[in-house]
C-alpha cells in the first residue's frame, strides 16, 4: 500500500500539474491528475490562491488556473522545505 501523501506533497503535485500544462489548466484536469476528492481539491486550490501560488481566471465561463512566480519558487525550493520539516518534525 502506498504511503499517505503529506500536505507539502499534495501542494507540490497540484503545482506540478499546473506547471506542466504551460501554466493554464482546468479544474477537472487538476482533479484527475492530483488524485484528490473534489472537496479536497477545492480546499487546496483556495489555499493556493490565498497564498498567491496560483491565479484563478475565468475564460468563457470556465475557471482556469495558472502558476505564479511564487508557486514556481515553491517547486524549486521543495526539497529544502521537505528536508527541514522532516528534520524538525513539522509534517
Amino acid at each position: 500500500m502506498s504511503k499517505k501523501r503529506t500536505r507539502l506533497e499534495i501542494i507540490r503535485d497540484i503545482l506540478e500539474v499546473i506547471k506542466s500544462k504551460s501554466g493554464k489548466i482546468k479544474p477537472t484536469h487538476i482533479l484527475y491528475k492530483s488524485n484528490l476528492s473534489h472537496q479536497m481539491m477545492e480546499e487546496y486550490l483556495q489555499e493556493l490562491i490565498e497564498k498567491s501560488f496560483i491565479l484563478e481566471s475565468l475564460n468563457k465561463k470556465q475557471k482556469t488556473y495558472s502558476i505564479t512566480e511564487k508557486g514556481k519558487n515553491y517547486l524549486s525550493q521543495y526539497s529544502s522545505i521537505v528536508e527541514f520539516t522532516n528534520t524538525f518534525g513539522l509534517n
Binding site: 500536505r7 507539502l8 525550493q77 522545505i81 527541514f84 520539516t85 513539522l90 509534517n91
Partner: peptide, 17 residues
Amino acid sequence: YSLKLYKISEQREIRLF
C-alpha cells in the same frame, strides 16, 4: 532560516516554529 523557508512555503507549522 525557518523564516526564509516560511516565506517560500507559507506553511503554518514553519511559521510557528
